[in-house]
């Protein structure tokens, strides 16, 4: 990690575009990523994986310039020693054991058999797969498959760790373990880029995020700044109840509720800028007026909706 410092960016994209035929991957993305953890957030198909594949040299940029640790990533075997990638693809050499898979891949580093053996064992232990390393990958659960992908990304101690949806299929304990591990990596001065479509998951690891939508960087900066951006937009809450008109009338009197719409005889939709306060008041109103409520849900809780807000598209 000789040339990785806290101030100089380790990954630089300058007006980088990538199209798949007529389908947009990313468009004119310019961004500098520095050492530490950077969260890449966005809905499916927003360009996160394209950006990560570009950084790891799996695909070429159509336009623009990019540098990873000062080098061009495409067709650069030497750079691969310094970059670890946990891709989203869930395909493996199914007939290999976990150990053999890692060992075989690490042998491609040309650092000798002993190094490959030790690194594979260490990475498998780090990923919590020590007990199952001699089992065939095809018998692994989804969580174990995820762990082995992360183990492969970590095994050669890269300076840049690129993780595409690394927590998919992991249990809460596993998520916590890996979050700590990635944080430790970042503290050592390495660069960790983590993608997720779950904002709060990324928020637990870092304050630096890149929000992507439709191939563009939509917002860049601290989580608080992005949250503020979100607060400017109302949330839509769907409530399924036996008395939608009565409950709607009561809720309209509450602070923060800007509109109520009766969906049908069993449901209403309201808009609020403060869903947390709404939930508190709703509990009180339901008990006080003996109203049955079957379901309360943020209809736009998923990030897709957030991005629709942020990109200026009308919700529902």
């Amino acid at each position: 990690m000789s040339d990785t410092s806290q101030t100089s960016p380790t990954i630089v994209l300058d007006s980088v575009s990538r199209w798949y035929g007529e389908v947009l991957g990313i468009n004119k993305v310019s961004v500098d990523i520095q050492a530490g953890i950077t969260g890449l957030v966005g809905p499916n198909g927003c360009g996160k994986s394209t950006l990560m594949n570009l950084v790891c040299g799996l695909i070429r940029p159509g336009q623009g310039q990019m540098r990873v640790l000062g080098q061009r990533p495409w067709d650069n075997p030497a750079l691969r020693r310094r970059v670890g990638y946990c891709p989203q693809f869930d395909h493996f050499y199914e007939n290999f054991t976990g150990y053999l898979f890692l060992f075989s891949m690490l042998r491609l580093h040309q650092r000798g058999r002993q190094w490959a053996e030790e690194s594979a064992r260490h990475a498998l232990e780090q990923a919590g797969l020590a007990r199952d390393m001699n089992r065939k990958i095809r018998s692994y659960s989804k969580g174990m498959r995820q762990r082995i992908k992360i183990a492969l990304a970590l095994a050669h101690q890269p300076e840049i760790l690129v993780l595409d949806e690394p927590f998919n299929g992991l249990d809460p304990v596993g998520r916590h373990e890996f979050m700590s591990l990635f944080a430790e990596y970042a503290r050592e001065g390495r660069t960790v880029v983590v993608s997720s479509h779950i904002l709060h998951e990324v928020e637990r690891m870092t304050d630096r995020i890149l929000m992507m939508s439709n191939g563009y960087i939509l917002a860049e900066g601290g989580v608080r700044e992005v949250r503020d951006l979100l607060r400017r937009h109302p949330f839509h809450v769907l409530i399924r109840t036996d008395k939608p008109r009565r409950l709607g009338a009561l809720l309209l009197e509450e602070d923060g509720v800007s509109s109520v719409e009766i969906e049908n005889e069993e449901a209403l939709m309201l808009t609020t800028r403060d869903p947390d306060n709404l939930y508190l008041r709703l509990n009180a109103l339901v008990l006080e007026h003996n109203i049955r409520v079957d379901l309360v849900t943020l209809s736009d809780e998923n990030v897709q909706s957030i991005y629709q807000y942020l990109s200026g598209k009308e919700h529902h």
Binding site: P77, L79, R81, F89, H91, M105, L106, L108, L152
Partner: peptide
């Protein structure tokens, strides 16, 4: 076809 091409391509071995 098995969608495993990225594994060797991500290692520091020339194509």
């Amino acid at each position: 076809d098995d969608q495993t091409l990225h594994f060797p391509l991500l290692q520091p071995t020339p194509r």
